[in-house]
Design a protein around this nucleic acid. Structure first.
Lengths: 191, 191
DNA sequence: CTTCACTATGTCAGTTCTTACATAGCTGAG
DNA sequence: CTCAGCTATGTAAGAACTGACATAGTGAAG
């Protein structure tokens, strides 16, 4: 019946399960650095919201908006909550591994090592910034660990994943920079 | 001029820079567990190969194939190599963060913790299997570390990233399973 | 006072990607 | 002998997604 909801549909439902939101707010919540689980343009979100509405998984109330259209505050329905709950424990489909930095790394042997080192230094800076941000938020969360069943549990668990991911990524960037400097200066063993 | 090559195009060029291949081989090389940097269906690869051919970045020679069509062995041209080299050091565009397991985690507070625990245990098993595979390959690579400039350098660096990624991911799955078991059995502090 | 950023919804063209279909020989298992 | 799996290329429909355009009020910075 429900003509297969795309993953983005469930991302929208997951956001709405935490708080009623406009389409715009859903997009900004998904872009929010902490728990950045799925990204989408507002146009795609509006498209999918219409589909979820047609399937009866969300509803909305209107309020005066800034633009020519009225603002629509969406909320998840009981049916939507059921669909989301059922989807959560289904095994995730194998994800299409797509990582531009790893691809560039794969072809790194062809390029200029100085320019490459610069690129990895920039990437490292980004990861370190995010890591610092996540660690600060984590310190706050640790003061008052949310129990399973609390909406904050999901945020905390996603944050934890982001935290260790950034750590792994920063470590790898440092390792790459080290490898590149060794190839430029083979005599020095330490950087 | 070159009507913007998609990222998959550069992935194809990166594979061809290492060895001449048929479209089918390119797909299987990209699916290869070690250095799994970009995935694509063969149909998409054939489409993009035609585009790269039109842009003069690849060429091919034919050989008798198993099916009704002749087999086409593609190779990268000098122009293709130049384009790839230039692309490698360009800063990567911010990637669309899309992770189904993290999304499920974000909505985990709504679901059955026992079913969730089962799901994470399955995910953990997958990550541990891959990790073991990567570690075995890494042990081989460490015997004879490729220098920068050798095609094997890219493979090694991508493998290193995959290795630490799987480690981070497995750790996180274990942490999640622990969190879930604590919520079911709050008295036990150790698993 | 102007300009920029933020809030907010929507359309539309075009790109990328997936999935299914179609063909066909070779090899190895049962 | 049959059937599955691997090699190999291709088409085509449709789904998913991006990015630009369009509109418009509020508030802050300069």
């Amino acid at each position: 019946m429900s003509s297969t909801i795309p993953t983005l549909g469930f991302a929208i439902l997951a956001v709405l399960a935490q708080a009623d939101s406009t389409g715009y707010e859903i997009a900004s919540r998904m872009r929010h650095p902490v728990s950045r689980f799925w990204t989408a343009s507002h146009s795609q979100i509006h498209t999918d919201l219409r589909r979820l509405l047609a399937a009866g998984l969300v509803g909305y109330t209107t309020a005066p908006g800034p633009g020519p259209q009225e603002k629509k505050i969406y909320s998840i329905t009981g049916e939507g909550l059921d669909a989301l709950r059922a989807w959560v424990t289904e095994p995730p489909r194998p994800q299409p591994e797509r990582d531009e930095l790893v691809l560039k790394t794969y072809a790194a042997w062809l390029a200029d090592p100085v320019a490459l080192s610069e690129m990895f230094r920039t990437a490292l800076r980004h990861h370190e910034e995010r890591l610092a941000e996540y660690e600060a938020t984590w310190a706050d969360v640790e003061q008052d660990m949310p129990a399973f069943g609390s909406p904050r549990f999901g945020n905390m668990a996603a944050l934890r994943c982001g935290l260790t991911y950034e750590r792994h990524r920063a470590d790898w960037c440092r390792w790459m920079i080290d490898q590149l400097s060794r190839s430029l200066n083979p005599s020095c063993e330490a950087s």
